[in-house]
């Protein structure tokens, strides 16, 4: 009986140590994810130009009217540089299976995600990295996500 109790005690101790170990690992990992999540993507001159074109494009006029974005102007276009906003937008991507798949598929390629904004909307899309700003390339229409600035709604547009 004494031997059995002693074994149970020992097992509890192991479980406690293992639990502490797992908790420590998880905490540091979670912290690193948070740090990464706050990072804003690099800015690109050509990516910004793409948003400016979207705002003026006749082909997107109906779409912009439908989502209430027809009042946005080229002058308002700027990169998202606030860590909290970038964190929220990174979460927005991670929490959507489709967007997350797209984001993952561009890892280790010459493309990256971009976050831009106007007064009332965020624009999330993928394009060539800023180091290619000196050489614009032709390419296919790809997903261009327009998000209300309170993150309450989003719309997909292929452009």
């Amino acid at each position: 009986m004494w031997i059995l109790n002693n074994n149970i005690m020992r097992i509890r101790k192991y479980i406690l140590v293992a639990g502490l170990f797992i908790f420590t690992i998880y905490s540091s990992f979670a912290q690193s994810i948070d740090l990464k999540n706050n990072e804003c993507p690099a800015k690109s001159r050509l990516a910004k130009l793409g948003v400016e074109i979207f705002i003026q494009l006749a082909g997107s006029k109906d779409f912009r009217e439908q989502i209430g974005a027809s009042g946005e102007t080229v002058e308002q276009v700027q990169a998202v540089e606030n860590g909290q906003t970038c964190s929220a937008l990174n979460d927005f991507i991670s929490n959507n299976r489709k967007f997350n798949n797209i984001n993952q598929s561009y890892k280790d390629t010459d493309k990256q995600v971009y976050f831009y904004k106007t007064d009332n909307f965020y624009y999330v899309f993928w394009g060539r990295k800023p180091e290619f700003d000196d050489r614009p390339a032709t390419g296919p229409k790809t997903l261009f996500i327009v998000i209300k600035n309170d993150l309450s709604q989003f719309w997909e547009y292929y452009f």
Partner: peptide, 17 residues
């Protein structure tokens, strides 16, 4: 994966850029 599931034609954002 970011491409169109149904190609609709016309110039793209990179083409305009």
């Amino acid at each position: 994966t970011g491409g169109e599931t149904s190609y609709k034609g016309g110039p793209s954002r990179p083409d305009y850029v």
